[in-house]
Nucleic acid binder design. Structure first.
Lengths: 105, 105
DNA sequence: CCCATAGTTCGAATATTATCGAACTTAAGT
DNA sequence: ACTTAAGTTCGATAATATTCGAACTATGGG
């Protein structure tokens, strides 16, 4: 009973970003890798970033990344294009994303 | 059957630090606050940092902080003195700790 | 209109985690 | 010795998370 076009994803405003939740989101290896790849690719569909993992698993991780404000997802045709909310995260937590993503893998 | 003096705490070498685990450790509000206070105090006993929480709970959190390499604990008399392994963390993850701890509470 | 594609949602199993009381241990003081 | 102080460890419980299959839903193409 859900409608993709009528119910776009909820993206929290910057004012609702919470440091602890952001750190938690990034503490999962799968999610950290997603964020890393988005940082280099600029944007990517969900399918491009699964490492052979089931769609439902990836969908779960993307939702968490969206919920904490790290990722923006927009529907383009049948695919969901994801990108980092870099400016938003930077404005709320200056230097944080850079400090984390610049660390060696 | 444990012996405090014979079994000092295990502190992982810098080479074993793992970014994801460190982020996870800091994603808990209780632990993040411990680390924040250690950053300002320099060092503190376990008791000084409980927020009225039971000792067993605090002991749990300190162990996690030790296990990921964030905190050093040494026995001094009957108390355990904790301090941040700032230099170690910095050497492995330059700028990370600063970036996290400088964020507004 | 039918079908494939892309991804979400639901449900359930499994695994981790947080919290705390109770029992324990060591060091230090009396 | 006895007692207190400071933490740790154990055990149990409750809350959360991860993973994935199955069913579902738009969109776009033939």
């Amino acid at each position: 009973m859900y409608d993709l076009s009528m119910r776009p994803f909820k993206h929290p405003p910057v004012s609702e970003f919470v440091l602890e939740r952001l750190l938690y989101a990034l503490s999962d290896p799968v999610r950290l890798k997603i964020v890393r790849r988005l940082a280099t690719l600029g944007e990517a569909s969900c399918g491009e970033l699964d490492g052979g993992r089931p769609k439902s698993t990836m969908s779960h991780h993307f939702r968490i990344l969206r919920d904490v404000g790290l990722v923006n997802t927009q529907t383009v045709g049948t695919t969901h294009m994801n990108s980092l909310r870099k400016d938003d995260v930077d404005s709320r937590f200056p230097g944080l994303l850079e400090a984390i993503l610049s660390q060696p893998e």
